[in-house]
Simulated assay, not measured.
Amino acid sequence: MSEFTIRGEFHGRTGPRTFTKEIEAVNENVAREHILSQFGSEHGLKRTQVTIQDVSAQ
């Protein structure tokens, strides 16, 4: 498994907020799906409220 750094922003209650997360995943697509799922679970956000700007492998 590879480690990916994902940067982006989501629409919070006070406006757009940026984030940087590191995650282990098989490939870039799995990392994106995991982040979208995580924000939905933890923050109650829909996928359309999360914008992923950059995914880089480490």
Rank of each mutant, 00 (worst) to 15 (best):
G40C: 07
Q38W: 14
A57W: 07
H43E: 13
G12Q: 06
A31D: 07
E3D: 10
F10Y: 12
G12F: 01
R47C: 06
E42Q: 13
I52M: 04
T20V: 14
E22Y: 01
E3F: 01
I23K: 00
K21F: 03
E3S: 11
G40N: 11
E9L: 02
T18W: 00
E3G: 04
Q49K: 10
T51Y: 06
T20H: 03
K46T: 13
K46D: 13
V30Y: 02
I23R: 00
E33T: 12
S2W: 01
P16F: 06
S56N: 09
L45Y: 05
S41V: 14
S37A: 15
L36K: 11
D54Y: 02
R32I: 15
S41W: 07
V55G: 01
G44P: 06
L36A: 05
N29T: 14
T14K: 07
I23G: 00
Q38S: 14
F39P: 10
Q53E: 13
G40D: 12
E24G: 04
H11P: 03
E28W: 02
G44K: 05
Q53M: 14
T5W: 00
H11L: 14
T51S: 11
V50D: 04
E9P: 03
Q58C: 03
V55H: 00
G44D: 02
I6Y: 00
V30L: 07
L36M: 14
A31K: 02
E24S: 11
N27L: 04
E42W: 10
E42M: 15
V26G: 03
R17E: 09
T5M: 07
E9D: 07
S56L: 09
F39A: 11
S41L: 15
G12A: 06
P16V: 15
M1R: 04
G15C: 06
D54F: 01
L36D: 03
K46I: 05
D54M: 09
F4K: 00
A31M: 09
T18Q: 07
R7F: 04
A31I: 11
A25Q: 03
N29K: 10
R13L: 09
F10Q: 01
H43K: 14
T14Q: 09
Q53Y: 06
G8C: 06
P16M: 11
S2I: 01
V30M: 08
N29L: 05
Q38G: 05
L36C: 04
I52H: 05
T48N: 15
D54A: 12
R47G: 07
A31C: 12
T18P: 01
R7W: 02
I23H: 00
N27T: 05
F4Y: 10
E28S: 05
F4S: 01
L45K: 07
S2N: 08
K46M: 04
N29E: 14
D54H: 08
G15T: 10
V50L: 08
Q49V: 09
